[in-house]
Computed example of a mutant assay.
Amino acid sequence: MSTRATGTVEMKSWDEKTWDGKPHNEVSGHKLTQGTMVGGYHGDLEASGETRFVMTYADDNNCESIGHELVNGALGDRTGTFVLQHVSGYHDGTVTGGFTVVAGSGTGGLAGLSGRGEIVWVEGQNGTYSLEYDLPS
């Protein structure tokens, strides 16, 4: 039986550059970028995460992204690390997306973790997440 975890996520740092190394906000219109984000999860998941993203912008207000995030902390009463694979979009100031726990990525008390979830993040605010997950007994 799956367990549901919910809470908020805050951005602690963000660094995004075009593929040729220019700051993303200095290039307008269609572009490809790569970024790194450090964030903090609060709620049922108390953890830090570092994500590497690759993004494709159609214009300055819309992009699609994929990324992998190493999460380190406590989920419920267990601690360890795991990796999330993100697929998301940024449209008119809001990020919406889904993520999946990468199979076999859990360590420590989170070994065997599986699950999937979603995130909504309005620019300038903390995001919200929900995760449906399973852990072996």
Rank of each mutant, 00 (worst) to 15 (best):
D92V: 02
N62E: 15
K12T: 00
K22L: 14
V54G: 05
P136Q: 07
I119A: 12
R52Y: 02
P23E: 09
G40N: 02
Y90I: 03
T107H: 02
G117N: 15
G115R: 05
M11T: 08
A111E: 04
L110M: 11
T100C: 03
M55E: 12
G80E: 06
R4G: 00
G127V: 04
T3N: 11
D59K: 07
S88K: 12
K31F: 07
V83A: 01
T79G: 03
K12D: 00
S130D: 15
L113W: 11
D77W: 00
Y133S: 10
E46H: 11
G40V: 10
T6I: 14
S13G: 13
V102Q: 15
V87P: 01
G35T: 03
D44A: 11
V95P: 06
G7I: 03
G124A: 00
T3R: 12
T33I: 06
H30M: 14
S28R: 11
N25M: 03
Q85I: 00
W19G: 10
K17G: 09
T6N: 09
P136W: 09
W14R: 11
S28M: 08
V120I: 08
S48G: 02
W14F: 15
N72T: 14
L70Y: 01
K31V: 13
L75H: 05
A103V: 10
E16P: 06
